[in-house]
């Protein structure tokens, strides 16, 4: 049976446009608001949803996503609570692929065997920043066996010799990290991204999503033409940070502001006629 991720990318291909992948941290700035955001993303135009598993020490993230992780943890978010939110949301949305993204320690602490709970909750794939192919036996292989796509990051430093290693156990799609750096920093050039995507395509049949450093509808629209999907994270999370009161609580209008931005990102990717995508 084809999973939600493959089905969605096939539909995007038929529709002739690139997909929008949105990243938010689960439970940011608090559990209720986080769940409202999650519930609104698909209708606002997110084709795939990446949900961050909050972690105290997000080494590959810039200040914006670091802060979102700390806000979520401060509000009591845990991995179990994240899975619970996914399960509740999944009852209302059976089609949109959802990918958990984060770091290994909360999963290791939860228990790799128990992590199959994610599948039951309605999670389709997982991205774990600090699990390179060298550590595939930890989670990648058990996850694949259980039926979760293990989505790998490829980076500008992943050279030709290493690409086959990176692709070997990758499933769902390949996430191309467009910059040498952490999330939310400067964007790479359009031409450079195009060349990188072409290079990846020589090594894989899987769709390629591009992320890190994409902020504006213009950037997303451009990347949508050369890759299968564009990922936006920090720029959305920043809107959350901009809508907090002095005590760090969500102000009215937070959810609407984030979802409005998702709509304009989505519009930049165009709509194919005769398709509900």
């Amino acid at each position: 049976m084809r999973g939600r991720i493959a089905t969605r990318f096939a539909a995007l291909k038929d529709a002739g446009r690139g997909g929008l992948v949105t990243f938010l941290t689960a439970g940011d700035p608090d559990a209720d608001t986080g769940l409202k955001l999650l519930r609104g993303l698909a209708d606002a135009g997110a084709d795939l949803i990446e949900l961050g598993m909050p972690f105290s020490d997000p080494m590959a993230d810039g200040p914006v996503i670091q802060a979102s992780s700390l806000r979520a943890l401060g509000a009591g978010m845990t991995l179990a609570a994240t899975l619970d939110q996914v399960a509740r949301w999944r009852q209302e949305n059976s089609e949109t692929p959802l990918i958990l993204m984060g770091y290994y320690n909360p999963i290791y602490s939860y228990g790799v065997a128990r992590f199959e709970d994610a599948l039951a909750a309605g999670v389709d794939g997982v991205i774990v920043v600090d699990l390179p192919p060298e550590e595939d036996e930890e989670l990648c292989l058990p996850a694949l066996d259980a039926g979760l796509d293990f989505i790998r990051l490829a980076t500008p430093t992943t050279d030709e010799a290493r690409l086959p290693t990176v692709m070997r156990h990758t499933a769902g799609f390949v996430y191309y990290v467009a910059i040498r750096g952490i999330t939310g920093t400067a964007a790479a050039g359009h031409e450079e991204i195009g060349q990188a995507v072409a290079r990846l395509k020589r090594h894989t049949e899987l769709p390629v999503a591009v992320g890190f450093g994409l902020r504006t509808p213009e950037q997303v629209g451009a990347v949508g033409k050369i890759a299968d999907a564009a990922v936006v994270g920090s720029a959305l999370v920043q809107i959350i940070a901009d809508h907090l009161d002095d005590d760090g609580r969500a102000k009215d209008g937070l959810v609407g502001a984030v979802l409005n931005q998702v709509r304009s990102l989505r519009r930049s990717l165009g709509t194919a006629e005769g398709s509900n995508l």
């Binding site: 290994y104 550590e135 990051l153 490829a154 430093t157 992943t158 990290v177």
Partner: peptide, 20 residues
């Protein structure tokens, strides 16, 4: 060879760093 002392150690880093 994988940098393990028993079950400890290893190379749990982002792909960007792995080649380095």
């Amino acid at each position: 060879e994988q940098g393990h002392f028993g079950k400890f150690g290893g190379r749990f880093v982002a792909e960007t760093l792995m080649p380095l």
